Computed example of a mutant assay.
Amino acid sequence: MSHPGAALYPLRLTVTAKPLVFGGQAIARRLGKTGIPDWSIAETWECSDVTGAVGVVAAGPLAGRSLRQVATDHPRELMGAGWSGQYFPVLTKFIDATGALPVHLHADDETARRLEGERNGKTEAWHILDAAPGATALCGVKRGVSPEQLRAALRAQDFDAVLRRLPVRAGQTLYVPGGTLHSFGPDTLVYEIEQTSDIQQHAMRWHMEDGSPVEDAEFDVNLDMLMRQVDLDNRPDFTPGLALTVGDGVERVFLCASPYFALERWRAGTAEPLRHSFATAQILSNVGAPVRVRTGAWEEEVGRAETLLVPAVCGDIEITGPADVLFGYLPDLDRDVRAPLLEAGYPPHLIDSLGQRHGE
């Protein structure tokens, strides 16, 4: 049921900034994001309906309402026909790994329900915005490593003995299914899209909030729970995405896509504007210079590293270039991903590689 008298429009949400120990100042200094604290920031939660960090509408007739209220009051207008849920299903963040993230994992759906008492797990994807030469990430357990070997190496903090270390390059994307051990950094700037969740299990001897030590008893409890949640068979790889030319100087790249979320990066010059039609809510995050965004009668500037949640009811959007923007959303895979890529001539196995869904 819609809230009377309040039509949906593109929503600017409050951002939660997380000052964790691996962070720095790249989100402000390299991306140009304003309005965040002037100290070391690890993450900004751009579009969040995670309990305890729920975004609040910052402007317009719905100012002061939480994203959860908007999703509850306007499910069809926000998410499109056929959607039902108790919260907005996709979470997006900028992450500054000036230092290395802790080695950790997030449970998949089944494990989250069984062991964490949560409604869903946390599959995620990282889109690399910037990385120092030689940057690497840890992701997945090496082939042939037994649970006993893994636990012993994690206990000794000998991560390279058991985890895959991958080269990291700007512009690439890694789809990380729930249950996959991972870390990235140092000197890596990432846009992350994931299921709405904050569950995680760490394999570190320090707390990421303040760097204080984790005592042995707590560490062993953490390790026991992590070992119950790890998937030894997930070995995802980075992908450059699948590109389409959709106008004169307008490029659309599908970075990742699964039942949980999809992420696209669109770039445009000045020959013609970026035009995008959609049937579900779009999380628009600007990773380039400020742009003018228009949908229907609504038109505003979206600055550097700002995010806009564009409801499904808007239907289409026009952005004046030059533009470099990300669109994250909950996809209908056949309609939103497979159809345009098949039409462009991409084979099904390449399309499926955008979401390496182990076991599906």
Rank of each mutant, 00 (worst) to 15 (best):
A153Q: 04
D324N: 14
A59E: 15
W298F: 07
I319A: 08
V190G: 07
R119P: 14
P311G: 03
Q195S: 13
R165Q: 02
L150P: 02
A152Q: 12
Q86C: 05
T188R: 04
V293W: 06
G52H: 10
A59N: 06
E343V: 13
Y329Q: 06
H3S: 04
E194K: 05
D231Q: 05
L138P: 04
F238C: 09
E318M: 12
M227A: 01
D237C: 10
R275N: 09
R12V: 13
S146Q: 06
W266D: 13
V246W: 03
F238W: 02
Y329I: 14
P61Y: 00
P89E: 12
I283D: 12
A6K: 08
G64Q: 02
D73E: 13
E300Q: 15
G5V: 06
R228C: 04
E124M: 00
A135N: 07
L166C: 01
S48A: 08
V337S: 10
V310C: 08
G80R: 00
L342R: 09
F219W: 15
C47Y: 05
C314S: 11
L189F: 05
F254H: 15
T123S: 12
S66Q: 03
L115S: 04
R29E: 00
M227G: 01
R275C: 15
D220Q: 15
K18S: 10
R12C: 05
I27K: 01
L163A: 00
Y346N: 15
H202C: 05
T295Q: 07
W206D: 12
V168F: 05
D109Q: 05
A312Q: 08
G99A: 06
I36F: 02
G185Y: 08
M79V: 12
D216F: 03
W126A: 00
G359H: 12
V168K: 01
W45Y: 04
R29Q: 03
E192K: 09
G345M: 14
G35Q: 01
D216Q: 13
A26W: 15
A17D: 14
V293R: 06
C314D: 04
W298T: 08
G247K: 06
L330M: 10
L105K: 00
P133C: 09
V56E: 10
T72S: 05
G64N: 03
P102K: 05
I27L: 02
W298E: 12
I128F: 04
Q201C: 00
W126R: 00
P348M: 11
P240E: 03
P259K: 01
P19E: 02
V310G: 09
A279R: 13
R165H: 04
Q200N: 07
S197D: 08
T245F: 04
T173L: 08
A58S: 14
H276S: 15
